[in-house]
Design a protein around this nucleic acid. Structure first.
Lengths: 360, 360
DNA sequence: CTGTTAGCGCGTTCAG
DNA sequence: CTGAACGCGCTAACAG
């Protein structure tokens, strides 16, 4: 049915090896022969069979990208930049690799399953994005699988997650986000504005990102003499509510926070999406932002500037990180020294935070 | 290096054919043999070589998804739902296909190039999402490529784009969005509120989505006696500014609109992202929404409800559409009668539209 | 520069 | 129920 190399060879009156050489262009072929072959290719509408090529050459055009959910702009931005980096640039089909996007939904099982699927495909590379599930058994299982992949030549890159435990085997280039530092500066900002009763809505439990951001928050409190041993610090611990990464979590958590302390003057959220839920709950409770309560998010997703007031947040250069992950997974750039590069995060102060108004 | 079927066979003391049968489970194999094989598989950590399997069985585990940009929530939502539908469900690796996401950036060349790449991979299916570029040569080129793909067994699905020209060959199931109807109802809503000087910011030119939405807008005007032959209608035509699908386009277009008519009382935008740019420009111009100017978007992306005021828009069930496209491309559901299903769009009235205040 | 010859790893006849 | 043999379509030595 489909036209094969042999068909082209027959038509051009050469051997299939010659056709292969013309196609791949890494071997000297006489100009006239090449032309005949190319004409035959065009006339027959020949398209190489990638699977056969991959099998014979032991190569692959696939790069796996594991994300929680591409519909979440955090992952969408990373995946998009990554895909654009590894994919087709100027229309030359041969330069590009294909990005296989896998929604894990944050499920450890799905993560492992997709790694298996990608191993089956002998993917050229795999990029794991976003926070890691912090469970020893799972971490070990992932490390094992990654080690096997790496051993068979698949490049591994972690983007937005902490490096694998040292000595766990696979060489994985890591692009880590400075979540802890960003969260710390954010809470320091709130404290500097004069806030003392600060609520915090965390992300889902058992995730590295959640933990790091929370640690940053606590570090800021401690540095300002608001550690848990102090009275105010003890109170601050009461104002930490565990949530998730969705808007609803922010909404619910905010109602809970107001129940615990209706004199709260600021709320920091696990990310921007949660922060919008926080804002909605505050408004529905008749509170003004930032006059009554300041709100801050994390990630600096595009919609943050269009919220009103515009959201104070911590910027992560997600697209840069995604593009860099793409270059790393293709081996186009050398891994950072030590294997891990930490990308800086930047505090973005906007209208949603202000000194406590005390107008209540 | 990597362990192969033959290795497993040797270890289990059977032929490789038997191992293959156990793995695929479509053939009778004695219980005891099966167990021995399965043990060998586990002991050796065997993982099938997808490329070899694909080559031998002439099958593929890949489904291509062409999008303008996954980072755009419009496409992200479709791609996410689609991926989740075709991917791994309950951890059974064998059920799942892999989604190859291709960012075309709206470029016709990239679209064709990715189709070639997917043809190389002998993808099981290809889903083209979002508006089509309306250029005869390009449409024909795409149709030709799709026809070839279809002929070689690749399932074709169009999601959010109009069906291929009749008789152009390939059987492609189409999920079309009722952009025209949605836009029409939206503008009717504005007219009903009392608006007469309505600005419209279009999407990029030469795209089916842009054209359909604009047609809906004009149809609404005409139905209310505001057709281009009338004086008000002629004015309305002056208030159509061509833009793009990004926020900046909305911003710039709005400034232009205000220049053309500073008595404008409503602006409809090509999509929600553009609408936010419109809002920003209005605010920066000292105008209130909706008191001075009403604003409406299109698509009902998640961030719309968190804008303030919340954005009046037209809802497209993107996730449903994406999931359905996934089922279609797997052949799990029959194509709609006639090959094309049009999904309804729904007007979502929120705070950003109101009767003209006349407070200026 | 070009043709010939082997596989790549697996699915699938066809015998037994 | 199982094994032997062939071929999927292509690349990579190895000659010439």
């Amino acid at each position: 049915m489909a036209v094969t190399l042999a068909d082209v060879a027959a038509r051009a009156g050469v051997s299939s090896a010659t056709v292969s050489r013309v196609l791949n262009g890494n071997y000297p072929v006489a100009g006239s022969t090449r032309e005949r072959v190319q004409r035959a290719v065009e006339e027959l509408d020949y398209v190489v069979n990638g699977q056969a090529r991959a099998l014979a050459a032991a190569t692959s055009d696939l790069v796996g990208v594991l994300v929680n959910d591409v519909a979440d702009p955090f992952f969408g931005l990373i995946a998009s930049a990554l895909q654009s980096e590894i994919g087709v640039g100027g229309g030359q089909p041969d330069a590009g690799k294909l990005a296989v996007v896998c929604n894990t939904g944050g499920s450890p099982e799905a993560e492992l399953t997709y790694l298996t699927l990608l191993e089956r495909q002998r993917a050229a590379g795999v990029v794991l994005t976003g926070g890691a599930v912090e469970d020893d058994a799972h971490t070990a299982a992932v490390a094992t699988r990654l080690a096997r992949l790496a051993r068979s030549g698949t490049r591994i890159v972690l983007c937005g997650r902490p490096p694998l435990p040292a000595g766990s085997g696979p060489e994985a280039a890591t692009i880590a986000f400075d979540n802890r530092g960003g969260a710390r500066r954010l809470t320091e900002h709130l404290i500097s504005l004069g806030h003392r009763r600060i609520g915090y809505v965390t992300g889902p439990q058992g995730r590295s990102t959640t933990r790091h951001r929370l640690e940053g928050h606590r570090a800021a409190l401690a540095a300002r003499g608001l550690g848990p041993q102090t009275r105010a610090g003890a109170h601050a611990e009461q104002l930490i509510v565990h949530g998730g990464y969705d808007r609803g979590a922010g909404y619910d958590a905010t109602l809970e926070l107001l129940r615990r302390d209706d004199g709260i003057t600021a709320i920091a959220a696990a990310n921007d999406t949660v922060a919008l839920g926080v804002c909605a709950a505050l408004r529905d409770s008749g509170l003004r932002i930032p006059e009554d309560v300041s709100v801050a998010g994390f990630d600096d997703l595009p919609f943050g500037v269009d919220a009103s007031p515009a959201l104070t947040t911590v910027r992560i250069p997600l697209q840069d990180a995604g593009a860099r992950a793409g270059r790393l997974v293709l081996g186009r750039v050398a891994p950072p020294p030590g294997g891990v590069a930490t990308v800086a995060t930047e505090l973005m102060v906007r209208g949603s935070t202000a000194p406590p108004g005390g107008s209540r």
